[in-house]
Simulated scan of single mutants.
Amino acid sequence: MTNVAKNVVEPAFIVLAFTAGCLLNRRRGGQSLPQETLDDDLESGAHYTDASPPLKPTVIHSESPVRKAPNLFFRLLSRFFNAYPFLVEIWYWNMTYWIYQGLRAMSARMIAGNKAVFLGARDHALQILSFEKFFGLDIEQRFQEYIMKEQAWLMPILAKVYYSHISVGVCFLVYIYTFLPTSTFQRIRRTIAADNVIAFFIVTLWRCSPPRLLPQEYGYIDILHSKAGGGNAWNNNRFQLTIAAMPSLHFGTALFFAVSLCRFSPHRPLRILAPLWPTAMLITIVATANHFLTDAAIGAMIPFLGWRINQIVLILKPVQDWIFAPLLNRLDLVNPTARSVPKTL
């Protein structure tokens, strides 16, 4: 598959996955508002069964007087958002994802050409390597060499695993929105956003090169940017922050997906298969020399911390209210006698 095909296939897959999420969660019967707020109802005592949909509104009958109806545009837009509430989740995903990627890109451009920063990142990588040697954990170079010599057929597959990180994350978001209770979905979503915040602080304060960028004498080979790896424009560009190996969010997030599915998924086959994803990702990041085992270990700790402090994402709630509340309240003006309110309000 050519690089051009890859640059088209991944974005197209993401669009299709989001479209599927909208269709799977289409609201029929009209009066439900799109999606829950960022309020944490997991700790508020609310109880939901695995069978209940994530966004099931509570209908409240009101005797409010009829107010002036909004213009046609807002009425149609409100009905559209009510019919396809997952559209709001696409907005959330884009907001949190692109804020994170934008900050990484800004950081990459700020340090571009700064030899001192890159030398410091290399020194940090060598410190990790020395730490692992002390405990006998420095298996990364030998493992990569084994894969390349004895299992060469596997390397292109591992590169695809690495680059499918975002696509799998989108599918995960669609799944948990569709099948998990609102409280669980909200906390998982906020945890992912909190993980990005934590990881960004670490990669900014303690920049670290991946093994593949170490000097040649250390024996690591840059698979991801080779012909076998076939990197694409989404991962190989001047805005890519290359010295951000610590922590490995590729592994940490993959592990968090698996733990979430094993703990909350109502589908047993998925609970059984879920651990395969972080296993494949761990093999991938080591075999491609993109992370040390220590990077993966720290990356695995990030979601556990993010799960505990996920409420920091609630600072975005005013942004949500400013953008969506005026639109969603328009529905009240159309039919004030049957007003639907998200169950988290």
Rank of each mutant, 00 (worst) to 15 (best):
F134R: 13
D138K: 09
N196S: 14
G229Y: 04
R263N: 10
L305D: 02
W98Q: 11
A289P: 05
L270C: 02
I111M: 13
I166Y: 03
C171D: 02
A83Q: 13
P303R: 07
T191E: 03
M246N: 07
V170Y: 03
F324I: 01
L249W: 12
V174L: 02
W307T: 02
I157G: 07
H47Y: 13
L249H: 06
N290K: 12
V341D: 01
L328Q: 13
G230T: 01
A108H: 08
V174M: 02
R308N: 09
L213T: 10
L214A: 09
Q186K: 12
F292D: 00
I157P: 04
Y220C: 08
L331P: 04
D138R: 09
Q311D: 12
N94I: 14
A105V: 05
Q186W: 08
G113Y: 12
K227T: 04
M155S: 12
T288R: 05
V174S: 01
L38H: 09
I309S: 04
N71W: 11
P85L: 03
P278H: 10
L331A: 14
K343F: 06
L154E: 00
R271G: 02
F304T: 05
N236Y: 13
Y146C: 07
R330H: 09
T184M: 00
D50L: 15
T19N: 03
I188W: 07
S32N: 14
P54T: 09
G102A: 10
V197Y: 07
Q141A: 13
Y92H: 14
V4K: 15
Y48R: 12
V197Q: 00
Y84D: 04
P342I: 00
